[in-house]
Nucleic acid binder design. Structure first.
Lengths: 332, 332
DNA sequence: GAGCCGCTGGCAACCGGTTGCCGTTCGCGA
DNA sequence: TCGCGAACGGCAACCGGTTGCCAGCGGCTC
């Protein structure tokens, strides 16, 4: 923790004014090439590094962007985080990652702490109200992920399309009754998914029922398995964790997936391909979403409020879905 | 993004000097109760919030601590992150989380960016050399996690004890040959685990062989399954992901776990209890480690360099380990 | 040869707090 | 009544850069 050299030290040793040193680094071209070379040389010798704090004070830019997720433990965010990190790094900023622990209150606290320090904010899976989000947006540029907030730059997968494709898949297999396992009530995605499942069900003549809400975790899914009506032949779960928990719960009670129950999840998390049977799930371009969010944030010069960006989803079919079981227990 | 009120605004409106406003917030007690009350009132009215950047410039404290992990996707870090977050929050600081992507080079870059902005740094699973870590410690207080660096505050699970208990468990079941699947060469934990497996093996009369290194991922474990000598009856894997991948790989080739091969992992990640069979694994008090690390960092007033803190591990026995298969294929 | 312009470097104000030091006021003991 | 110290508020310097403005200088045009 040796004392850092300042522009004043460099200036003195190089025989120029501090402002010249400053310009050498922050405004190259503004200073004569030879002078700049000398300054750089002295700076290197002294191990000078510009003090980002002091810089931030005058420029009002810290070079840090925040990414808030509703739960770091949720693997869905993994690719979002990676995408965001890559974009931030490419743009020369640091990313400040924080966890709102599935709580609007905690999310608010986190924002309170981080907002003053950052140039912008990506809210992935915010549990706050639109009003609260808009309030934050009044302090710093905000990009909303996984959700659409009017008049705020938003990036979201096409939840409706995803839910529709899940239901079409099940209907195509011959299912006529489908249960939807709801996630957190504060989840915007949950609302969109349920609504789309409901509507698509009506269009396809599939009877849909809603169960829950359940915590968006494996444990939540296990609990759902206990409460699942016996006749249920097909389930769309809020996300993959719930779906995985459900499958396990069913299996532990002696049921079989997909023979007795078909299960579809959302997000295509890594583990979806790990469990047995593999989980059929709705995949979103998570990495791309993370990257786009940060890019949007960083490039917001004219504060152009583009319309919400909705990205296509894709159904990944694995072993957890199959035609409903015949009444007879033996195959045809 | 309305203009924020400053101490000058508050001072003017309250009819006091800016320094009084400053002291009202940063040095309560230094100013008369009545004056303070008035200042606070005016501040509230104006929505004044102290500018953390400006504050950081003079106090040289940003109130941010960084936590660097080798891979955010690794569930092992999850509890560490949670523990660290809780401790940071309790201490009134913000946590800056970053990912070094299993690369010393990238880790270095990340540090370059974050060090200037933070009050201290927790390195969890650093892939850098001791020298590089010491260099960082010269710039900011550092606490090392999962590893011991001489003369630096270090917190690590008792890797040796963990590896020993794993091997004792296998030996107790009757295994006489055990393979160790190595992790990243730059991993300090890997070195400790292997060494302990080796030594314990010698003491217990168990023949141990080392395979790898493999990437510390499920995919790495699957690859290991392909390269596993046919006669192998018991395996200790670098971590749970590798162990899980191994189990899957074995199963896909028609092998059975634990009947044909017993498998032990490290870290007791969440998924260890999710796979079938459940994974026997060495658990470390991850959450506590994360919390202790941040606490150590924050409370480092006298820069007391306590000795390395080594925390006990605990073997969690699940279904992936069993006595070796008899020569006869039928049960006794 | 006068006027103008672009290139450079320096001066000094400023960003928004923090803090050492000083002066005033006031209570209290001698 | 005088002296002394504690309490309290203000002044101004400072943290380390950034930047608007100005001046000197050389070159070019007419």
């Amino acid at each position: 923790m040796a004392k850092q050299a300042t522009i004043y030290d460099v200036a003195a040793l190089a025989g120029v004014a501090p402002s010249t040193v400053s310009r050498t680094f922050s405004r190259p071209g503004r200073v004569n090439a030879e002078t700049a070379a000398r300054v750089r040389e002295v700076a290197a010798e002294l191990g000078y590094r510009t003090n980002r704090i002091a810089q931030a004070l005058t420029t009002a830019r810290t070079g840090v962007v925040a990414l808030t997720v509703s739960d770091i433990g949720n693997p869905y965010y993994l690719e979002i985080i990676r995408g965001a990190e890559a974009a931030a790094s490419a743009a020369g900023c640091t990313m400040l990652l924080s966890d709102s622990r599935e709580s609007a209150r905690h999310e608010q606290q986190v924002l309170e702490r981080t907002l003053p320090l950052v140039d912008g904010l990506v809210l992935a899976g915010s549990r706050m109200s639109d009003t609260a989000i808009r309030a934050a947006a009044r302090q710093r540029p905000v990009v909303v992920l996984n959700r659409v907030v009017t008049d705020l730059p938003s990036i979201a997968p096409d939840h409706a399309l995803g839910a529709r494709s899940a239901l079409e898949h099940l209907a195509g297999l011959g299912h006529r009754r489908v249960a939807y396992l709801a996630g957190p009530e504060a989840s915007w995605a949950d609302g969109m998914r349920w609504r789309s499942v409901l509507e698509t069900g009506q269009q396809l003549g599939v009877k849909v029922t809603r169960l829950g809400p359940y915590p968006p975790t494996v444990a939540g899914g296990s609990r759902a398995a206990q409460e699942l009506p016996a006749a249920t032949g097909a389930v769309v779960a809020y996300n993959d964790q719930v779906a995985i928990g459900l499958v396990r719960g069913i299996q532990q009670r002696g049921g079989r997936v997909p023979d007795d129950v078909s299960v579809v999840g959302f997000d295509n998390i890594f583990a979806a391909d790990l469990v047995l049977p593999g989980l059929t799930t709705v995949a979103a371009p998570a990495r791309e979403m993370g990257a786009r969010a940060v890019e949007t944030l960083v490039s917001r010069e004219g504060r152009t409020y583009e319309r919400a960006m909705v990205l296509p989803t894709r159904l990944v079919v694995r072993g957890s879905t199959a035609p409903p079981r015949r009444k007879s227990t033996s195959p045809a």
